[in-house]
């Protein structure tokens, strides 16, 4: 009782401590986050933009402004143009597969069955396992001599032992391999997003639709999908930006080969900017898609907002 009485005792304005003032505490608490974004996101980003219009290299670290010269030179390269096409293909196809698998996984995992908790935990593994470790495992599965995939296909008679598939050696199969691994990494994210979306669909609406005779597909496309569309859009934006800027799977699995058939902008930018020390051209390659990504994100978010209203 004494404590309560003490706690409610009015504090004189004069002695009010600075930490009791929201106008001071608010900015103070948000400051680290702002500082973090400014120092670790905004500053490097603007620096990268400046690098892309400068003559900066490790050999000659000059900030001399060269305008769009670097961009012009990058566009002249056949490797870059080929890489750009690969990046779009890699991103779009792995998004489609990642989200499709996510949707299927979520629909399975929303059902009530024994061990559902364990299954849900296991599904997150591809997302949680360090990418280097995961890709190493995949690399062995795609190995030219010891591929377990080939071994299995040969064992069931679906592959000629004298002519095994070269998963990382032929251009189309190599792209299939990197997309498979990336979609495998993305799909837990899709599952989580779709699960969150599916649990937010009101059960009474679904029940009413079922009573009215709506089947699985109609319930899925006429009721569930429109309701969870905003959350899918967010997943799509995240997934697309993540994939467009990712280099880990390609770098670790194929290093862009064979004959640049799996090269993506992230890996090429790393190759040119970091390994070869040509920071300015590396920055151009990495930032090339930024304006398009920004525009696409803005349009998607606007569509989303309009739809919510």
């Amino acid at each position: 009782m004494t404590a309560i009485a003490e706690g409610t005792r009015p504090v004189p304005r004069r002695s009010r401590f600075v930490l009791d003032r929201p106008e001071f505490m608010g900015p103070l608490f948000i400051a680290p986050a702002i500082l973090y974004v400014v120092l670790l996101v905004a500053l490097p980003f603007f620096l990268a933009i400046y690098y892309s219009v400068s003559a900066y290299t490790i050999f000659n670290p000059s900030y001399h402004f060269v305008g769009l010269k670097n961009l012009k030179e990058v566009l002249e390269s056949d490797i870059f143009r080929h890489t750009l096409g690969n990046t779009f293909f890699f991103t779009i196809v792995s998004q489609i597969f990642g989200l499709l698998l996510g949707k299927v996984g979520a629909m399975l995992l929303i059902q009530d069955f024994p061990g559902r908790g364990i299954a849900r935990a296991l599904v997150v593994l591809p997302w949680a396992v360090p990418v280097s470790l995961a890709v190493l495992a995949w690399k062995w599965m795609f190995d030219s001599l010891y591929s377990v995939i080939n071994w299995t296909l040969m064992a069931v008679g679906l592959m000629d032992p004298m002519n095994p598939a070269q998963w990382l050696g032929t251009t189309d199969l190599a792209m299939t391999a990197v997309i498979t691994v990336h979609a495998w990494r993305l799909f837990p994210f899709g599952v989580v997003i779709f699960l969150a979306g599916l649990t937010s669909v009101p059960k009474d609406v679904l029940d009413a639709a079922t009573i009215d005779g709506a089947g699985f597909w109609r319930r899925n496309y006429v009721i569930i999908m429109p309701i969870i569309l905003p959350i899918i859009t967010i997943a799509l934006i995240f997934g697309t930006v993540f994939t467009f800027t990712d280099l880990s799977v390609v770098y670790l699995l194929t290093n862009g080969g064979p004959v640049n058939s799996t090269q993506v902008l992230g890996s090429l930018g790393f190759q040119v900017g970091v390994l070869s020390g040509d920071v300015s051209h590396g920055a151009v390659i990495c930032l090339f898609l930024f304006p398009f990504l920004l525009l696409a994100t803005i349009i998607l978010l606007k569509v989303l907002r309009r739809r919510e209203i």
Partner: peptide, 24 residues
């Protein structure tokens, strides 16, 4: 130097061979 290194980093010589070897 940096130029020969970048040629190597970008695998241009092996890719030249691979493009011809595979008939691309």
């Amino acid at each position: 130097g940096p130029a020969p290194d970048e040629v190597a980093d970008n695998f241009i010589i092996p890719d030249m061979m691979a493009k011809a070897a595979t008939g691309k």
